[in-house]
Amino acid sequence: MNITSQVTPERIIISIEGRIDTTNYGEFENDINKILDTKTPEVVLDCNSLNYISSSGLRVFLSLHKKMMASGGRLLLKSLQPSIKEIFDISGFSSIFNIG
């Protein structure tokens, strides 16, 4: 798992690469939290290179989504791979997240 970010005052774009699973979700969450600023109005998660995600990863996404909602911001998921999109669909997350 590797993440890169692009920070502007209006939005933060975070690109996620590789796998997010039980072994590294904690690390992922930490990394995201480090990048995030509660005042940022929009956060975009670019999932183009996200190959795999397990429930642990989904939980991180969810808590991130909650955090953004609480601060009046917006979380946007982008370029999900079909297998990942399937997981989002199955888990019902597709209806929660803004997926573009």
């Binding site: 397990s54 429930s55 939980r59 609480a70 888990s91 997350f93 929660i96």
Partner: peptide, 22 residues
């Protein structure tokens, strides 16, 4: 319950649900 809004969803319990669904 996958239909409720995100802010109301529990974190957890998702793993076995995914297994069942997949």
């Amino acid at each position: 319950d996958t239909t409720i809004p995100a802010e109301e969803r529990e974190i957890g319990g998702l793993g076995i649900f995914l297994i069942k669904k997949l």
